[in-house]
Computed example of a mutant assay.
Amino acid sequence: MSNTATTVAAPPAPATRRRRGLAPLEPVSATSKWVLGLGFFVVFFAVWAFATLGGYVSPTFLASPITMAQEGWLLFAEYNFIHDIGMTVWRVFGGFILAAIVAVPLGIAMGAHKGVEAFFEPFVSFCRYLPASAFIPLLILWAGLGELQKLLVIFIGSVFQIVLMVAVTVGAARKDLVEAAYTLGANNTGIVRRVLIPGAAPEIAETLRLVLGWAWTYVIVAELIGSSSGIGHMITDSQALLNTGQIIFGIIVIGLIGLISDFAFKALNRRLFAWSSL
């Protein structure tokens, strides 16, 4: 009976293997990732070109890829767009680094000590639902229209998210490792320094990578009001002139810079935490 059951059950195996490439959660090779990722952009630009060059969409509402590229070249050649890019990058990383300096230690303290968490968590949870753009009128009153105001917009948009995400990561540490460290003679400070922080470090780095992506969305809001430079300032000026080519080019530049920074962050995390599965 067992031999018969084995014989009957055997044929579906090849079919299962043939379907494995489309199975849920089945990984794909690095080459396939690149091909599929680039394939989407090829399809996207092809549809865009078909809609605009074919006359299906008015240039007033959507410039063609060719017009967008021409306007982008004009921005670099005549309007010193590289300076705008530099200012935007400086604002994003400046505000984000300030947020990380404040948020990571506070998040570690909240995750490690429940009393600290009970004190700060309600306020931090309340603040993280407040849109950073809502603070702009107050920040203009407090800090003027200079760089500090723009850095603070990105700081406010990032700091509360980092605090809570770091606190959750640190608080999810394995209790058996903590108990083992106490058994070996570690004190409270040693538990935080030798167990909680090293164990949570890869997840904290991944949290910073994710929030950096959010910081790029805040910078345009920060540059829309009272700014004389930056990609957001260029987009605002282009909107007044109905120059959709420059608007789209600015948006694409932001996406490209964000993508490059994301890849760099991933590579750094893999190098620093090679033992982690992230």
Rank of each mutant, 00 (worst) to 15 (best):
A205H: 02
I204W: 06
Y182R: 15
G185C: 08
R194G: 00
L212P: 13
A200G: 01
V195K: 14
L208P: 04
E223F: 09
E179M: 10
S228P: 09
L212G: 05
V178K: 11
L208Q: 06
V195W: 14
V192A: 01
G213K: 13
L177F: 12
V168I: 15
V170A: 01
L212S: 11
T169W: 04
K175E: 15
W216A: 08
L164A: 05
E223T: 12
G226A: 00
A180R: 03
E203W: 01
I225A: 03
I197W: 09
D176Q: 06
G213D: 05
L224H: 07
G213P: 12
L212R: 15
A186F: 13
M165A: 15
N187W: 02
A180E: 00
A173Y: 01
Y218K: 14
K175M: 07
A200R: 10
L164P: 09
I197R: 12
S228Q: 11
L208W: 04
N188P: 04
E179A: 08
V219C: 07
T169L: 10
T189Y: 10
I225F: 09
T183Y: 06
L184E: 08
V166T: 15
A222H: 06
V168S: 15
V170Y: 01
T169V: 11
I204Q: 06
E206P: 11
L196C: 08
A200D: 00
V178C: 06
E179Q: 14
A167E: 09
N187T: 12
L177N: 07
L164E: 06
L224E: 10
L210R: 06
I204N: 05
G199Y: 03
R174P: 02
N188I: 10
G213Q: 12
